[in-house]
Design a protein around this nucleic acid. Structure first.
Lengths: 225, 225
DNA sequence: ATCCCATTGTCAGAGGGGCGACAGTTGCTT
DNA sequence: AAGCAACTGTCGCCCCTCTGACAATGGGAT
């Protein structure tokens, strides 16, 4: 996979890869608890790595995990997912290697379902399988819809939307402009320019590796829709 | 949905809407045959219409169906699917109205699965549900991969690829350049220019409402992989 | 044969965004 | 405190595509 593709993958992953759909209700999880293994990952450690055989899927219970691709040099953060996210299920079900790596940002607790134990269990609990199926298909459809909203939009609009999504409770987004650009599949320069314009209007403030949302309404306006 | 969105939907649908994945093996179908109802549709008749409550999903056994959106004026063909295609399953599982209409192009025979009968049956046959799930998720992933190939490609490349896909056995594509442009989400002028270039290189010939592929290899080269 | 509409073919202008280059900042490391 | 690597802020250039406008051509309808 060449560099351009890799970049686009990141963009793509942000766009679609929101694996934080939750097919399982608490009841379901209780039913599956036998098959699930409780794991706790410290910041910086890996849940799984790109290319490894996908032996398990994870349901994040607490904390934030980061999905990324690529070798240490040229690493691309692909998405950040939190509580309720399901990681690695596609690769696991298909029996293929993981498509990306997952790393704990802070302390992450998760339920780990190995393929060998999960599949038989799903066969016993068809309702859960059905729920998973519906969640998966919904994801597929949402993916397509999201395209509509994303295609043919300017970098400024995309940046605005991303910031709205990504801002923490203090309205801060701790990402370098380069990372931001990668997430959007745009160039750093364009992102920089877009941020400059958003700053002019008073929607955000920018700093070193941090962007602060000061006026969500203005940002929403800039995001268009 | 405004005009721009509608256009993009067409593009999108062409890109992703290839609903011809087949989650069910012949064995599965036999197992489900009780729930399935055999239907035969004559050319021009509808399997279902956009906006109707999605009461059933269809598995095409023979013939070609056309998915489209929009009212009679401003109708957009979205995809053509053949044998093995599954139609309407997403909407049905989610219990929402159909997203598009499906019409028989030639005589279509299909298995019709109503929601009320299918769901209980899937609960009894978890293995089939699981297979459906995997097919759905694979589709999701394929969709994402396809994006990679499509993003940031020039109109010329996209036109070339579309022609390769769409050419009939005589190498002809019977579409106006305007329709072509809609399918790609590009402007007519850009498509016209792209066709002009492809014509110069000897890859295609153009006529009134028809484009003839004369050199597939050259076209493939122009499509860039 | 003629008319009219759909379609093709072109051109100029404008805008968005990618790329390369480079200066100025920030913050960690030693 | 100094050095260094990462990051931000800007330019200029160029490519691609969109828009709008208009001429030329094809083909069906009368």
């Amino acid at each position: 996979m060449n560099v351009a593709d890799q970049q686009h993958f990141a963009w793509l992953a942000r766009t679609f890869g929101r694996t934080d759909y939750l097919p399982l209700s608490p009841d379901d999880l209780r039913a599956l608890s036998d098959a699930g293994e409780f794991v706790e990952k410290y910041p910086g450690t890996h849940l799984f790595r790109e290319g490894q055989p996908a032996e398990a899927a994870y349901v994040v219970q607490r904390g934030t995990a980061e999905l990324y691709r690529g070798p240490k040099a040229g690493l691309r953060v692909v998405a950040r997912v939190g509580e309720g996210a399901v990681l690695g299920d596609i690769a696991m079900f298909r029996g293929e290697p993981y498509i990306s790596s997952a790393r704990a940002v802070d302390t992450v607790t998760a339920l780990r379902f190995t393929r060998n134990r999960l599949l038989p269990l799903l066969v016993e609990h068809p309702v859960i399988t059905l729920r998973w199926l519906v969640a998966g298909l919904s994801q597929l459809e949402a993916t397509q819809r999201r395209m509509l909203r994303l295609m043919h939009r300017t970098v400024r609009e995309q940046v605005a939307e991303l910031l709205l999504d990504e801002a923490d409770r203090y309205g801060e987004v701790h990402l370098s402009q380069a990372s931001l650009a990668t997430l959007l599949g745009a160039s750093r320069q364009s992102v920089n320019e877009a941020l400059g314009e958003l700053r002019e209007t008073g929607a955000v403030e920018t700093g070193y590796r941090v962007i602060t949302v000061v006026d969500r309404d203005r940002l929403k306006a800039a995001a268009g829709t």
